[in-house]
Design a protein around this nucleic acid. Structure first.
Length: 636
RNA sequence: GCUGGAGUAGCUCAGCCGGUAGAGCAGCUGAUUCGUAAUCAGCAGGUCAGGGGUUCGAUUCCCCUCUCUAGCUCCA
């Protein structure tokens, strides 16, 4: 038997007998590593711990700490769940069962309708399978044989999957006792490796994500290498729920959504303060960045929407009405109005770029099942702008807008990722123009060295776009900012400017938003800060709390002083103990509290208390005003 | 829209097998005048989402509608 040379991630090399399994190498390295090992990476290929190594190789042992190890672990758990379901509901057919962020799912087609009451039985069966410690066994099959095999089992979905695999694909199946699944692998050595599992939720999911297909039943679950890790995860999920903007929005009285208007949010006084602060900031910044502001009507005639292409390309998302017998539509986008403003007078090349902003309220018909708090609504305010420019200005403007968006997100401490969305199916205009536009977006991203992913076919019907995604409290991402490059609208609306040659030319246009939708942005902000907004955004910035009712008069004087300095203050002069009032203010997430007793009243001071730090001691009123003003101005 | 789940007081929730609803918090009133996260007592609060059906009787069982909710993209 010959020997082979195995190199490890730390650079060391060791000689082993040919055909050695990764798990044996792991044992050689350390007992702990062997215990934590899940799968291996041999020459950059993921394999089972029991796959013999037959040649010199670079070996890496992967554990739950590695993304790939975690994925294999959950993927194996999904097979265990499938096996459990097969045992309990034998006529079940199988769709797909991948690992996902934080867990895994499996899609089933079964005569049985799963409910949460089945969780217990399925989990119990999974535990049994885990206890049986059944090895996962890999087998590679020729295509024909694989097709025959799954066909004989009646696994129509698997047959479909195999038929769609490329000609040269290696078709592998994994068996664990009485259960066999089509799977690329790799898997853990045996079911016993999975320690803690929990079924999380139940949902319908169309086969292959298309609503033309049958809806399968999807069970979401998760798995961890220990009960403690599972519980820590469940705790984290519970904590995240407390940050949910729908819950906080109601508690903090920011907004509400009623049955009288599903998807149409009401903003309450406190939510309006937050919103107005954001809009004020937006206006100030946009002046600095060279924007003008306009406001266009909400309802405009059918002729306009036909011209813009919305009537053909966006029909199912629009609301319609009739005025004096003529068709009108409620605007789903601000651009056509902006076009009309541009067209209202002739333009010279000297004016370009023209950056025309609009906080525009748009209405869109979203599927009822897609509505979600402020994140997905049927009416929202876009912090829109349309930039009309010369072709040679495109790249600079793209960079400019990207920097503007980045400066906003940085202020709030958001991390975000960018997606480039390309030509969709129902696109307007010729593919060549799209190609050009898409490439300019790419170039701008590359010029700034911004990382981005590509989202094929997800562009707007009039142009490709760069989308900026922010995360919510449970890790779902929402598109906020977007930059869309548009060669179509200027054409449709016959926009022109007079060039240096005294001839008419066609400008190019960018559509862009920074917040995206003010509503969605407020939702994201609420979850980001868990409702404890920075001082400049807080609806109530300071709460004045009296120890006894002797200080009530003084309290209102203090409130007057703060109000005069532009600080939003409220007095709590209820006949309650100070602890009670502090608790109330703390629950309302008021950033500063001013506690007033006899001492403060005599000295003309206030005992300052910060939401995040507790008692700061007595300060003069001037000092307090200066401190708060500074924090507000610098948006700390 | 589709699939599963849910809807009881302002909020969080209880209500067994059908006999017309209960708690805590919030609110109001009174007492207490208190120093950094809940003082005590009393009072008031509900067309049990809406509609229909079964029944002597429905919050409870059945059907329809509305709304909310998880998901329907992350490719064996």
């Amino acid at each position: 038997m010959s020997t082979i040379n195995i190199s490890l991630p730390d650079g060391s090399q060791k000689m082993f007998e040919q055909g050695i399994m990764p798990i044996e190498v792991a044992k050689e390295i350390s007992h702990d590593l062997a215990k934590a090992a899940l799968i291996a990476e041999v020459n950059a290929k993921k394999v089972s711990l029991k796959a013999p190594i037959n040649e010199d190789a670079a070996l890496k042992i992967l554990t739950f700490e590695d993304e790939e190890g975690k994925t294999a672990y959950r993927h194996s758990a999904s097979h265990i769940m499938a096996q459990a379901v097969k045992r309990l509901f034998s006529d079940t057919k199988f769709g797909i069962g991948p690992a996902i962020k934080d867990g895994f799912y499996y899609d089933f087609d079964s005569s049985h309708t799963f409910t949460t009451e089945d969780y217990e039985a399925i989990e119990a069966e999974m535990k049994k399978i885990i206890k049986e410690n059944i090895p996962f066994e890999r087998q590679e099959l020729p295509r024909e044989e694989a097709l025959r095999f799954f066909d004989s089992l009646g696994e129509t979905y698997k047959v479909e999957l195999i038929n769609d695999l490329p000609e040269d694909a290696v078709i592998s199946i994994y068996g664990q006792g009485d259960f066999v699944d089509l799977c690329a692998g790799p898997h853990l050595p045996s079911t016993g490796y999975v320690k803690a599992v929990k079924l999380m939720s139940l949902a319908g999911a169309y086969w292959r994500g298309s609503e033309k297909n049958k809806m399968l039943q999807r069970i979401y679950a998760t798995a961890f290498p220990s009960k403690e890790l599972l519980e820590a995860y469940l705790f984290k999920v519970e904590e995240a729920k407390k940050r949910d903007h729908r819950k906080l929005g109601a508690e903090l009285e920011l907004f509400m959504i009623l049955d009288e208007g599903p998807g149409f949010p009401f903003f309450l006084p406190k939510g309006m303060i937050l919103r107005n602060e954001l809009e004020n900031f937006w206006r100030q910044e946009h002046i600095k960045w060279g924007y003008q502001e306009i406001k266009t009507p909400i309802i405009l005639s059918r002729a306009l929407w036909e011209r813009s292409g919305h009537w053909d390309h966006y029909q199912e998302n629009m609301y319609y009405t009739k005025i004096d017998g003529e068709d009108y539509s409620v605007k789903p986008m601000n651009c056509p109005g902006g076009m009309l403003v541009y067209k209202s007078k002739p333009h010279s090349y000297r004016e370009l770029p023209i950056r025309m902003g609009e906080l525009g309220l748009v209405h869109r018909h979203e599927l009822s099942g897609a509505l979600h708090g402020l994140m997905r609504v049927r009416c929202f305010t876009q912090d829109d702008a349309h930039i009309f420019m010369l072709p040679e200005q495109i790249k600079d403007e793209l960079i400019n807008v990207t920097k503007l968006i980045d400066s906003f997100y940085k202020l709030f401490g958001f991390s975000y990722h960018v997606e480039l969305s390309t030509r969709p199916e129902n696109a307007m205009g010729d593919p060549e123009t799209w190609e050009v536009a898409t490439n300019v977006l790419r170039e701008a991203m590359e010029a700034m060295e911004m990382p981005y992913t590509v989202n094929e076919g997800d562009g707007a019907f009039y142009g490709p776009k760069l989308d900026f995604h922010l995360e919510d409290s449970i890790g779902r991402t929402w598109q906020c900012g977007t930059i869309q490059l548009d060669f179509q609208m200027p054409e449709k609306f016959e926009l022109t400017y007079t060039g240096a040659d005294n001839q008419p030319h066609r400008p190019v246009m960018i559509h862009r938003v920074v917040f995206g939708s003010i509503e969605r942005f407020i939702g994201i902000l609420t979850e980001h800060y868990a409702g404890a907004f920075p001082l400049w955004l807080s609806p109530v910035q300071a709460k004045i709390l009296t120890i006894t009712d002797r200080q009530n008069g003084y309290a209102h004087e203090v409130a007057q002083k703060l109000t005069a300095a532009g600080i939003r203050a409220e007095v709590d002069d209820r006949n309650e103990k100070i602890g009670y009032k502090i608790r109330a203010a703390q629950t309302e997430k008021v950033p500063y509290m001013l506690v007033l007793g006899d001492k403060e009243m005599e000295e003309g001071t206030a005992a300052l208390r910060k939401r995040s730090e507790g008692d700061l001691g007595a300060r003069s009123m001037d000092e307090i005003v200066a401190l708060l003003k500074d924090e507000i101005i610098h948006k700390k």
